[in-house]
Amino acid sequence: MAALFCLQNNFFPLPKLTTPPSSTAKTLTSVTTRRAIIFGSSFTVLNSKPLALALAQLLPTDELQLQEDHVVQLFQDTSLSVVFIKDLELSKVPKSSSKGVVLNEDEDAKLEGTGSGFIWDKFGHIVTNYHVVAKLATDASGLQRCEVSLVDAKGNNFYREGKIVGFDTAYDLAVLKVDVDGYEIQPVVLGQSNNLRVGQSCFAIGNPYGYENTLTTGVVSGLGREIPSPNGGAIKGAIQTDAAINAGNSGGPLIDSYGHVIGVNTATFTKKGTGVSSGVNFAIPIDTVIRTVPYLIVYGTPYTNRF
C-alpha cells in the first residue's frame, strides 16, 4: 500500500507556498482529500479482484516456468539414486552363483513382483521395504532371486543381483547389497522427518506397476499416523501423503522440495474389492530409517533383536 501511496504523490505534487497561509491550508486540505479519495478507490479496485489474479499480476511472468524447471531438475537429480527391484523365482537352482546380472526371467526365472528402493551409500547398499524382498529373505529353496536395476552417476543403466544384508519386519525395512565395482553410484541425500509440516510439498519416485522412473507429486497430508507392519505390529509416526503410491512404489523415496529423502513409500489404502488406491498413502519417516539401517548393515538384524 505504501507503493500505491507513493504513486499518488507522484501524480499530485504539493503546490508551492505562493499563496497566503490561510489559502495554503485550504489548498493542502483539498489536495490531501483528493489523494485520499484516489488512494481509497485504488484500494477498492485491488481488493475486488480474486486473490490468485492479484498475486499473478505481482509475480514475474516466468514464475510458473521456474517452478516447473525446479521439479524437473529435482526428478533428474534424485532419480539417479532410485532403483528398480524385481522379485524372481528360478526354475532350478543354478550350479554357481554369479555376482553379475541375474538370470533372464523370460528363460530361466519367473517374475513374481516388483518394487523400488534407493541407494544408501557408495558401497552398494540399497534400502527398500521388507515386504518387497520378503520371499528372498525367507527363502529356503535357493530359488528366489532379486534383480536390481541401477543407474550410475553418468546415467548408464546396469543390473546386479541383490543379496539380503538385513531386515526389520517391525518397521518393514530391508537392506540389499549389490556389487558396484567399476561404477560410480549416487546415494540419496537424507533429510529429516521430525520437522515436517502438514501442507508442505513432497514427491514420490518409484516404479508403480513396473513403470520405471515415475514421479508423483502431492503434499504432506498428515503426520504421526499408525500403519500395520509385516510382523503384525504397528509402525508409528508414519507420514501420510496424497502423492500417488501404488504397487511397485514400495521402498522408493519420498522427498521434499530440496530433494532430501523424508520417508520410504510403503503403503496405500485401497478401495475394497477393487485394488484401486484411495489416495491415502503412507511412508515410513526417514528418522526411523536412519536409526534402523546402520544396525541392519552391520549386524543384519535390528538393535532390539540382538539381546
Score class of each variant (00 low, 15 high):
Phe84Asp: 01
Ala36Thr: 13
Asp69Ile: 03
Ser41Cys: 05
Ser81Ile: 03
Ser42Trp: 08
Gly124Phe: 06
Asp106Lys: 14
Ser81Gln: 05
Lys92Asn: 09
Glu89Lys: 13
Leu46Asp: 10
Ala56Leu: 08
Lys122Trp: 00
Ser96Gly: 05
Lys49Ser: 09
Lys92Tyr: 12
Val72Gly: 00
Asp69Trp: 02
Lys49Cys: 10
Thr44Val: 11
Gly124Glu: 02
Asp87Val: 03
Ser98Ala: 12
Pro60Val: 05
Gln57Pro: 02
Pro50Gln: 10
Gly117Pro: 02
Leu103Thr: 02
Thr78Phe: 01
Gln57Thr: 11
Glu89Gln: 14
Pro50Ile: 06
Glu107Pro: 00
Ile85Met: 01
Lys99Thr: 14
Gln73Met: 08
Asp106His: 12
Gly124Asp: 02
Thr61Ile: 12
Gln76Lys: 12
Ile37Arg: 07
Lys86Asp: 12
Glu105Asn: 09
Phe75Asn: 08
Asp87Cys: 04
Asn47Asp: 09
Gln57Asp: 15
Trp120Cys: 03
Leu111Thr: 06
Glu112Pro: 02
Thr78Glu: 08
Val71Ala: 01
Ala56Gly: 14
Phe118Lys: 00
Leu58Met: 12
Ile85Val: 14
Asp87Ala: 05
Phe84Asn: 04
Gln76Thr: 10
Lys49Phe: 15
Phe75Met: 07
Val71Arg: 02
Gln73Asn: 15
Ile85Phe: 04
Leu46Gly: 11
Val71Lys: 04
Leu46Met: 14
Ala52Lys: 10
Gln73Trp: 04
Val72Asn: 07
Ala56His: 09
Asp121Arg: 01
Phe39Pro: 02
Phe123Ser: 13
Ile119Leu: 13
Phe39Glu: 10
Leu80His: 12
Gln76Leu: 12
Leu80Thr: 09
Leu74Gly: 02
Gly117Gln: 06
Leu88Lys: 01
Leu59Lys: 08
Gly40Tyr: 07
